[in-house]
């Protein structure tokens, strides 16, 4: 439960920083974490606070359980043939999403619409690989390497229950801040189940890291060039292509194959 206590501190820290920033800008306090109608300074500070909060969880957890950072994460990222699973995960995620986008493009569910200014697009393109890796590493370390690891270590819950609880926390964390749409929650839950199953089945982070990074790579990569035309039940929305029914089915199917092949459950 050490991990849950650490994780719970992140939204509290975010709220405190948000309140201080709102006060400094003479704006009324908010109960919800929200970037709605706030100046860029508050928005940026909020983003930095979230990242620092998650980084603190990553760095503090090994120390809190009497280990050290290198030993803890080193064991989760073994330098052996299992590294291949990262490539397999990334290739599968990229293949599935690419096929979906090609089909959706052909049937008018997404349309080519190059938007944003060219300089920003180029910057995003150059940062695509680092952003995908950074995002995947951060979330995998926190939700699999800390939360799921801790639930498996400190509770007697069966593996499937740990997977479901970890996936639920992963999905819920994406909605702590006020967001535009909440119907994408089942998509995030399905993604959480896949990534948690991947970790539970292999005992390391390579497979979940690969899937996660591959997914972010395609989603962020096409973002400046495509617009979602829907319907949402097919395509999901905006940056959540896995939130549609085919996406959810793909995530859960992939999770089922990993669980079946690994015979962990």
């Amino acid at each position: 439960m050490t991990a849950l206590a650490l994780l719970a501190g992140v939204p509290v820290l975010m709220w405190v920083v948000q309140s201080v920033m709102l006060k400094l800008h003479s704006m009324p306090l908010r109960w919800r974490l929200s970037n709605e109608d706030v100046p860029d300074a508050i928005r940026t500070t909020g983003r930095i606070t979230t990242q620092l909060g998650l980084l603190s969880v990553i760095l503090l957890y090994p120390l809190a359980i009497g280990s050290d950072i290198t030993t803890h994460y080193g064991a989760l990222l073994p330098r052996d043939h299992t590294l291949r699973l990262a490539a397999l995960g990334a290739a599968t995620a990229i293949l599935i999403l690419t096929l979906l986008f090609i089909i959706w493009l052909e049937y008018g569910c997404v349309a080519v619409d190059i938007h944003g200014n060219p300089r920003k697009r180029l910057r995003r393109l150059l940062m695509l690989v680092p952003s995908s890796l950074l995002g995947a590493f951060a979330e995998e370390f926190v939700f699999r390497g800390v939360i799921q690891f801790d639930l498996q270590r400190s509770t007697t819950m069966p593996t499937m229950a740990v997977v479901m609880l970890s996936a639920l926390l992963f999905a819920a964390a994406h909605y702590v801040r006020k967001v535009k749409r909440y119907w994408t929650f089942p998509g995030h839950l399905a993604l959480g189940i896949l990534l948690c199953v991947a970790y539970a089945a292999t005992g390391h982070l390579w497979l979940s890291l690969g899937i996660h990074a591959g997914g972010i790579f395609v989603t962020l990569g096409v973002r400046p060039y495509l617009r979602y035309r829907g319907p949402a039940w097919v395509t999901g929305a905006s940056i959540f292509p896995f939130a549609g029914i085919p996406g959810i089915a793909g995530l859960l199917g992939f999770a089922a194959i990993i669980a079946w092949k690994a015979q962990t459950f």
Partner: peptide
């Protein structure tokens, strides 16, 4: 009609990849 075709093909594409993965997993 387009949406139905897109949905059916989406499921088909996802299934193909997953079956391939299941068969060649090892």
């Amino acid at each position: 009609h387009q949406v139905i075709a897109a949905a059916v093909l989406s499921f088909f594409a996802v299934s193909c990849v997953l079956v391939f993965l299941a068969v060649f997993w090892e």
